[in-house]
């Protein structure tokens, strides 16, 4: 799937390893340089000695649950099961607030018309469905070029700018 990082199309080098019935998770998750796992598998995955560790969460996971892991994580992927589920916007905001500086990726139902808002909440990476991607999408970030509110890269609202 096409991946955008910092407004550029790049190659995705992470692959999500989820538990599957009838398959041994540890076996499947071993030997990856970059290992991305669901939140529930974090502890197990941590012991496997991958070079870099990433976690994928939904809006169910609270920021406090992630805080102890932040220093070990190179990627946090927040899933939007449907575009209407706006919890990820707030979770991203909270993660940046507690000092997470690594890759923050929006995955799931991520469409063009939310890219600008997502970026302003602290996401810097966006995984887009193949059929929804075109290079023109990169224009979406700057459709609205001035803002009343602060954002992840500049917390100052308009009256402080």
């Amino acid at each position: 799937m096409p991946l955008i990082i910092n407004r550029e199309k790049v190659q995705d080098s992470w692959a999500l390893v989820s538990p599957e019935e009838g398959a041994d998770f540890v076996e499947r998750a071993s030997g990856h340089e970059l290992l991305l796992v669901p939140f529930d598998c974090l502890e197990v995955a941590d012991a496997l000695g991958s070079k870099q560790l990433g976690v994928q969460v939904t809006g169910e996971v609270e920021v406090e649950q992630l805080v102890p892991w932040l220093s070990k994580l190179s990627l946090i992927a927040i899933e939007f099961p449907v575009f209407r589920d706006g919890r990820g916007f707030s979770l991203a905001r909270q993660l940046r607030r507690v000092g997470y500086t690594g890759e923050l990726r929006a995955v799931g139902d991520v469409g063009r018309d939310r890219l600008g808002y997502l970026e302003r909440c602290g996401f810097n990476a966006f995984l887009i469905a193949e059929e929804a991607y075109s290079d023109e999408l990169l224009q979406a970030f700057s459709e609205i070029s001035v803002h009343y509110q602060g954002s992840a890269d500049d917390p100052r609202p308009i009256y402080h700018q």
Partner: peptide
Amino acid sequence: QWSTLHPEFAYL
């Protein structure tokens, strides 16, 4: 002004 096009609170 604060609420207009608020990036975090558009999908409540």
